[in-house]
Design a protein around this nucleic acid. Structure first.
Lengths: 119, 119
DNA sequence: CCGCATCCCAAATGATACTG
DNA sequence: CAGTATCATTTGGGATGCGG
């Protein structure tokens, strides 16, 4: 990832680029989320990609991973301060998509129903 | 591109995602640019990718392509109104990259020198 | 529940040479 | 100048199965 950048936008994209990272960050922006919770909110992503992208975000200092090895094990993800500094960007990406969807009559697919043991 | 979106951010990324589109848009945001001008400002991109990305941006309604078949042929690219509506997003992507670069001591590579006939 | 490992395919991107 | 065409490579992403 040590590429040569000619423009700051390139650097930003190297960190948050890709099909999923901004979506993940946009969800975490709303608060702490467990792994399974993120998966349900992103029905299109595979487990492999979700794990992989989360780890990259972690190693880039944008996300914190907290493991709780209790009787009901869970892992919680949240934004670091640097991750949170992306808030305005994510907000605009969200709003721009909303407006474009509205202008073109695009609807968003609903999330799958909650399962009893999802919590 | 008719995918099912679960979150507005996904739609936005479908339009401006990828390694180069935001960089291209960030340059056009500063004003009209010719093809060769863009190429010089993005030394990392191949001609094929530049052409391809510009055409996609055009067909997504973000960019205008104007051909001048004069004795010194040229093609000028500029933002449409919808493309210009991405201004704030691009601005933030730029600024975030700048701040991260500053915080980590990353420098940006200089552009290649001007050649006499580049204009 | 939250992953990791492996294999495999498709899409994205790149290098290079050539053209109107 | 502003691209095409072609080929090669890299990366993204999915499916499946196993493990702590």
């Amino acid at each position: 990832m040590t590429r040569r950048y000619h423009c700051p936008v390139e650097l930003t994209l190297d960190v948050i680029g890709g099909r999923w990272k901004p979506v993940i960050l946009a969800h975490l922006k709303e608060g702490v989320h467990r792994y399974g919770e993120l998966r349900r909110r992103m029905p299109g992503i595979s487990e492999k990609m979700l794990t992989q992208q989360l780890r990259e975000l972690e190693s880039d200092g944008l996300v914190t991973r907290a493991v709780f090895a209790e009787r009901r094990p869970r892992v919680e993800y949240s934004l670091t301060a640097e991750g949170a500094s992306l808030g305005p960007v994510l907000q605009l990406l969200y709003e721009w998509g909303e407006r474009r969807a509205g202008a073109r009559g695009v609807a968003f697919a609903p999330l799958p129903p909650e399962t009893p043991d999802s919590r």
